[in-house]
Amino acid sequence: MSTPAPVLLISAQRTSTALLLAGAAARRGLETAVLTGPDTVRALTGRAVHWYGGPHLADRITEPLHLGLLEPPDDWLALLPRQLTLRTVKLMTHAEASRLRHPFFAKPPSDKSFPPGVYTDGERLPPAAPQTPVLVSGIVSFAAEYRLFLLDGALAAATRYAVHGRLDPAPLHEDPYAPAVRAFAARLPGLAPLPGAAAVDVGLLNDGHWAVVEANMPWFAHSYAAEPDDVLDVVRRAAGPYDRVPDGDRRFLRPAAGAPGHAPSDRP
């Protein structure tokens, strides 16, 4: 009896990236399934499943589908060498950030619990649970921003996604800064410990220097103008069967729902 084909499971909220990845999956001989409820999970139990969608839904299906989801640690950006961030970055709780009395940029490390942005002081932060992790950084301006999809430290796919803070996707090969982006990407693996599959945003500051913007979970990151087939390789590695996660990546596994220190990260 032949082994069933692997499955790309996407949420019912079909984003443009999910549709592009579904097309790439079809070209690779994968099936695509849409998560519509418990019946979908039951039908896929025992299959090799790869996930593309939000963390909150992922927490509901990780155990029954035996998924291993890779993600950068919450403090990844805060622990980077200053030469990669070119600004002060600290990880703190929402309660601590709310007490700040100066302008700062704030965002959740990896989810959508509140909108990232510049806040004049901590009282302006949107409400959240006191222990919600928040990355607080100095305010910088990026002339252009790029998303890098990395696989075992190598650049698998990349796209420009913003110019002067406005959404402006373009394939990397069409961007005049492509050589500089690739050169900066080559520096990351040696200076910034990452899962074997990761999505990292980098940007060109207005002063001409390059800096890391943030890290993302590939299985919850827009592909913008990156090549979908190459992005799919990264997503499959970052969100697939638990028993196929390499030993070196196990420290980057997303904690199971209900584990100490874990909380749901996005809204259904």
Rank of each mutant, 00 (worst) to 15 (best):
L91H: 13
L30K: 00
P6D: 00
L20T: 11
R60C: 10
L100M: 12
E96K: 11
L30D: 03
L9G: 01
A106I: 02
H66T: 05
G37W: 08
L80E: 06
L100S: 10
R47T: 12
S16Q: 06
G46N: 12
T17P: 10
L19W: 03
R47V: 14
P6H: 01
D39Y: 02
L69V: 04
G54M: 09
T3Q: 12
L57N: 10
T40G: 08
A78D: 04
D75M: 01
D39L: 09
T45L: 05
L86E: 05
G37F: 14
H56S: 15
E31H: 13
G46F: 15
V34G: 13
R87Y: 08
W76H: 07
P4R: 01
Q83D: 06
I10K: 03
L70Y: 01
A48V: 12
L44W: 12
E31G: 13
A33T: 04
A78S: 13
T32R: 07
R47L: 13
L67A: 04
K107V: 06
T3W: 11
V41G: 09
A95Y: 04
D59M: 08
T17V: 07
P103W: 04
T3E: 13
A58P: 03
L79S: 15
R101Y: 00
V89P: 09
R101W: 00
P38H: 11
E96I: 06
E31P: 09
V49W: 10
L67C: 08
P64D: 05
P4D: 03
F104Y: 02
R60Y: 06
L100F: 04
G68P: 04
L84C: 09
R101S: 11
L84V: 08
L91N: 10
S16W: 10
V41I: 14
S11K: 00
Y52F: 15
A33K: 14
M1T: 11
V49A: 13
L30E: 01
L77F: 02
L20D: 14
A43F: 11
L19M: 12
D59C: 08
L67K: 02
R101N: 10
L91M: 05
P4E: 07
A106T: 10
A22W: 00
E96Q: 15
D75H: 03
F104K: 00
A58T: 11
V89G: 11
V49P: 09
T3M: 09
I61W: 01
L80R: 13
G54Q: 10
P81G: 02
R60I: 03
T17Y: 06
A33P: 09
A78F: 04
P4I: 05
R47I: 14
A12M: 01
I61T: 11
A24C: 06
L57A: 14
W76C: 02
L79N: 15
A22M: 06
P73Y: 07
I61V: 15
T32D: 06
T32M: 07
A18Y: 06
A95E: 15
D39E: 15
L19K: 07
L8W: 03
P72V: 02
S2I: 07
G46V: 13
P4F: 08
P81H: 09
A24N: 10
V41N: 07
A43V: 05
T32P: 10
T15V: 05
